[in-house]
């Protein structure tokens, strides 16, 4: 993976917004004094008249976006996941979710790969929070190609969408010329028969590498990228579970309420299967470099490999 180009998905977000802004007059982008960090500043430079800085007031920004959406604009409301989903949860629930308003939430700095800022800014709970809101679409792209495609798909979709992006550079493993984003559809990246690894976000390329390591031990792992966590691809999850009989989920998020829980919700109802949930094990993060944290909390290829080996015993 070391030779692969790395791009943070928050940068993909900023770049995709510029492209959308070039094509659509109704697009507006909001931020709460985090234009530089959320990369909406890329959009600000291209479309200064459509970029709205609301100051450090995420609750107000969220509802300003609602007012804009109700009067015909398509707002992308940008902050850190901690504030977009956490601080403004009730605004998202009552003013976006309940009236089903066409607001797109662009949440950057999700998960522990925030790094040095530490646990106060490392949001491992946003997927769980957003999943509880009826009608909310949740997209967690894995690389630059997927992230840009997801932003465009979110614009085209009528209704609320939560987009989850990371701060740290992640490998670009998808091929833009062949990649196709379909909301709600998972992608089989590697076929296998012994165990299914269902991953999202930055754990996707790590899971692919872990699968290569497992292959050397004679374990044939199937790797699936679930970019849309809600609505989740039930069909694909049931199909892979039926095929391998063992499921591992991997996410840069709490194992409570995230992708792992969503997969278990599907399987427990329709095809009870043994599931190993890899993610943040009900603990807060800490300061450190993104790569050091991903390693410590066993979300890198090595950590995923070790945990699957243990699970397969």
């Amino acid at each position: 993976m070391s030779e692969v180009k790395k791009i943070a998905t928050r940068v993909s977000y900023g770049n995709a917004l510029v492209e959308l802004g070039n094509e659509h007059d109704d697009l507006v982008v909001l931020t709460a004094d985090l234009a530089a960090a959320t990369k909406t500043e890329i959009f600000l430079k291209a479309h200064p008249d459509k970029h709205i800085n609301c100051g450090i007031a995420e609750a107000n920004m969220t509802d300003i976006a609602v007012g804009l959406a109700l009067t015909g604009k398509v707002p992308f409301c940008s902050s850190f996941a901690m504030f977009s989903a956490g601080r403004a949860f009730e605004q998202v629930r009552n003013s976006i979710g309940y009236p089903h308003v066409n607001v797109k939430i662009g949440a950057t700095h999700a998960g522990i790969s925030v790094g040095e800022d530490g646990a106060s800014h490392q949001c491992n709970e946003d997927i769980a929070l957003m999943r509880t809101i009826p009608g909310m679409v949740i997209i967690s792209p894995a690389d630059d190609v997927e992230a840009r495609a997801a932003v465009k798909a979110a614009y085209e979709y009528e209704g609320p969408v939560y987009l989850r992006f990371g701060r740290a550079g992640v490998p670009v493993f998808n091929d833009e010329s062949t990649y196709k984003f379909e909301m709600g559809k998972g992608i089989v990246l590697k076929e296998g028969k012994d165990v299914s690894i269902i991953a999202t976000g930055l754990t996707v390329p790590e899971s692919l590498e872990a699968a290569n390591m497992l292959a050397k031990d004679g374990i044939d792992a199937e790797v699936i990228n679930i970019h849309t966590i809600k609505p989740i691809d039930e069909e694909l999850i049931l199909k892979t579970a039926k095929k391998t009989g063992r499921v591992v989920t991997a996410e840069e998020h709490s194992v409570i309420g995230g992708l792992g829980s969503a997969v278990c919700d599907v399987l427990s109802a329709k095809l009870p299967t043994l599931v190993k949930k890899i993610g943040m094990q009900d603990v807060f993060g800490e300061s450190g470099s993104a790569s050091a944290l991903i390693h410590k909390y066993q979300l890198d290829a090595e950590g995923i490999y070790d945990q699957i080996k243990e699970f397969m015993k």
């Binding site: 507006v28 008249d49 459509k50 709205i52 609750a59 107000n60 969220t62 509802d63 300003i64 976006a65 609602v66 007012g67 804009l68 109700l70 009067t71 015909g72 604009k73 009730e90 605004q91 009552n94 003013s95 309940y98 009236p99 089903h100």
Partner: peptide, 30 residues
């Protein structure tokens, strides 16, 4: 969604004024 003439769901205090502000901003933008 239920009542004709209602421009926004409200009930959780403090949110309506922000939504109204967003609507006013929207009019200015266009």
């Amino acid at each position: 969604a239920h009542t004709p003439g209602v421009d926004m769901n409200t009930g959780s205090l403090g949110q309506g004024v922000s939504v109204a502000t967003g609507m006013a901003l929207s009019a200015k933008l266009s």
